[in-house]
Design a protein around this nucleic acid. Structure first.
Length: 330
DNA sequence: TATTCGTGGCT
DNA sequence: TAGCCAAGAAT
């Protein structure tokens, strides 16, 4: 049993409250609160954790044998890429490079190649660089400390918290796009969170974090899973939501998002598309690729050149003598 | 703070 | 069909 069940289970949710004192703790806040205060945020924990017990997906990086390295690899791959597309690449990656040192011993270009079509191939380069850093600085073990995690290439606020929480069971606010959406709806009463993570969201996440460490870690995974499976961006399934009876957004009639439009990502015709086509050619070939093979993938020579220069500048492509190119050996 | 950075499935 | 969206990080 968890120790975070709220004393006031049927009070109204904390609509639009971003004023929760950070670190006050759910139970302490409930005791000190006056008649007009927001509801104890801990009332969210019980339903979400119980739901997670029943509906959590059996994902390979959640199994004990995944270890911290497996969790870390999955987090890199899942940055902006759907689970279903990550699964096969994850399995191959871990089979080939079961420890950070195994990946560190390879050329970075091999990481880019194995990354396949997951997208954002700089992540592959950063994962390789992180493996090198782990091997050199941490004896080959994924560090447990949040500060050391976030110092690694490709690991930011979210991933550091996720690895510390999922791999090591620590207590950190884990704010990904799923959790932010769940909080926006259930606690704040709006359809979507802001475009960029705000200080108010961090305060809210901290205020909602269960006190007990292992419960906090479970809460992080559970709230994320709820956003991924039920409280989705489109076509949310409130009928299956354990928070439906207390969701601020739903209780207020699910008002449409007002603020600025969520920035769309155009792709067709962009440098990103050209980069993708160029890199796809290089991934397919173990041997260096002649310039002509790259020229064939895009008509606009100006844009093509700019994209290739960008890939070289990013370290994703290595230029050779005679106008030939390959994935980086070092 | 606002942009840039891939890819593919879904509506 | 043309967006919209998916476990963000770096600059």
């Amino acid at each position: 049993m968890t120790s975070i069940d709220a004393p006031t289970p049927d009070a109204l949710p904390a609509a639009a409250s971003s004023a929760s004192p950070a670190g006050a703790g759910a139970r302490a806040g409930a005791a000190a609160r006056g008649s007009a205060g927001p509801e104890d945020p801990a009332t969210l924990h019980g339903p979400v954790l119980a739901w997670f017990d029943r509906h959590a997906r059996d994902l390979p990086w959640r199994r004990p044998e995944a270890g911290a390295w497996g969790v870390m690899v999955s987090e890199f791959m899942l940055q902006q890429t759907p689970v279903v597309r990550v699964l096969p690449v994850y399995e191959q990656w871990l089979a080939r490079w079961p420890r950070p040192a195994d990946l560190a011993a390879e050329a970075p270009g091999e990481a880019v190649r194995a990354w396949g079509r997951l997208g954002y191939p700089r992540r592959a380069l950063r994962l390789h660089a992180a493996a090198v850093a782990i091997t050199e600085r941490h004896g080959g073990d994924v560090p447990r400390d949040h500060g050391r995690l976030i110092a690694l290439p490709g690991i930011g606020e979210y991933t550091a918290a996720a690895v510390a929480s999922f791999a090591y069971g620590q207590r950190h606010p884990v704010l990904d796009t799923n959790v932010r959406r769940v909080f926006a709806r259930a606690a704040t009463g709006v359809q979507y969170p802001p475009n960029a993570t705000t200080a108010a969201e961090r305060r809210l996440a901290r205020a909602l974090l269960p006190e007990e460490e292992s419960t906090a870690a479970r809460w992080a995974a559970a709230s994320m899973e709820l956003g991924a499976l039920v409280c989705t961006a489109k076509n949310e399934d409130c009928g299956r939501c354990p928070l439906a009876d207390r969701c601020a957004w739903r209780l207020s009639g699910k008002p449409a998002h007002d603020g600025p439009p969520r920035r769309g990502q155009t792709y067709a015709g962009t440098d990103r598309q050209v980069r993708g086509k160029l890199l796809a050619v290089l991934r397919e070939s173990t041997d260096p690729v002649p310039q002509a093979a790259l020229d064939a993938v895009w008509d606009d020579a100006m844009q093509r050149g700019r994209a290739l220069d960008g890939l070289v500048a990013d370290g994703l492509v290595e230029p050779l003598e005679g106008g030939r190119y390959r994935l980086p050996l070092a």
